[in-house]
């Protein structure tokens, strides 16, 4: 097989797939971003994107994604850290991962019930003396549900990189008189930073492109880049504008991947996180 001069035929389907479903779609998105509603060439979509409406939308989408990522890290890091110290850590890790396999829609649907006007969250508030509140369709519910959904995707890479740290390094640091905090800041944190980076990659980009949760949980109050694309493609039917937003989402994705990129492979295997 090594010295086969002709390109083997069995590869054809795979290369056709690359051409048709990897290269062509991206090319089409770029092409359509220069078309107006009638199909004529225009730069208007790009002009529109830099108008205040879309810039504000982009900024707010980034702000939400930033908040969601930050809160997810704050919750997931201690979880991952303490998980590495449990007895059956692989089993516990599996238990953290299982909820990520449950369909996103069902989890969002559960929160429609939990956060509803007569749901358990409001019953708890009433028991505490605060009257029933409108929790659903607020920024709070949007961020809460997003963080809930992304926790497993952050715990897994952080857990993996913390678990790889040689315990002798921590013992050495202790023996040399470092406090627990110094040990964490100077030894554990820098050694596990790659896990955090993979986690950010797995959370930030999907958080920018969420549209199911915004529709079901946030009403139409929160508009992310993903929601805007869906809106343009399926509601307004303005594919040109939708493609323009998609072009920028692709650009942001590339920038984020370069910022959080690492030569070491492994980040890729953290699952399909879209």
């Amino acid at each position: 097989m090594k010295d086969s001069p002709s390109r083997p035929l069995y590869l054809a389907p795979y290369y056709i797939w690359i051409a048709l479903f990897v290269i062509a779609p991206i090319a089409l998105i770029f092409y359509f971003s220069f078309l107006d509603l009638t199909g004529a060439f225009t730069l208007e979509n790009y002009q529109n994107f830099f108008s205040s409406v879309y810039l504000r939308m982009t900024l707010s989408s980034f702000w939400y994604a930033f908040l969601i990522t930050l809160i997810t890290i704050l919750i997931a890091y201690p979880t991952a850290y303490w998980l590495t110290k449990t007895k059956h850590k692989q089993l516990w890790l599996l238990l953290i991962i299982i909820p990520s396999w449950i369909n996103l829609l069902l989890k969002a649907y559960a929160f429609i019930g939990i956060f509803g006007l007569y749901g358990p969250a409001n019953k708890l508030l009433q028991a505490l003396g605060a009257g029933p509140l409108q929790i659903l369709f607020t920024d709070f519910s949007f961020i809460f549900v997003s963080v809930y959904i992304f926790i497993p995707f952050m715990v897994l890479p952080i857990f993996n990189s913390l678990d790889k740290i040689n315990p002798a390094l921590i013992d050495a640091s202790r023996d040399l008189g470092a406090s627990s905090f110094t040990t964490f800041r100077r030894i554990i944190f820098p050694l596990a930073i790659n896990g955090v980076k993979s986690g950010v990659q797995a959370v930030f980009i999907p958080a920018l492109s969420l549209f199911v949760i915004t529709r079901l949980i946030a009403g139409n109050k929160v508009i992310t880049l993903g929601t805007a694309i869906e809106q343009q493609f399926l509601v307004t039917q303005n594919w040109g504008m939708g493609s323009t937003i998609a072009v920028f989402l692709i650009l942001f994705m590339i920038i984020i991947m370069m910022l959080t990129g690492q030569k070491e492979k492994g980040g890729l295997y953290n699952g399909k996180t879209k």
């Binding site: 048709l20 479903f21 062509a24 779609p25 991206i26 089409l28 998105i29 359509f32 980009i205 999907p206 920018l208 492109s209 549209f211 993903g226 694309i229 869906e230 493609f233 594919w239 939708g242 493609s243 998609a246 989402l249 692709i250 994705m253 879209k274």
Partner: peptide, 12 residues
């Protein structure tokens, strides 16, 4: 992201 895959496949 899924939105991009979905949108570009729709065009395709």
């Amino acid at each position: 992201p899924d939105v991009i895959i979905g949108a570009s496949f729709l065009i395709l």
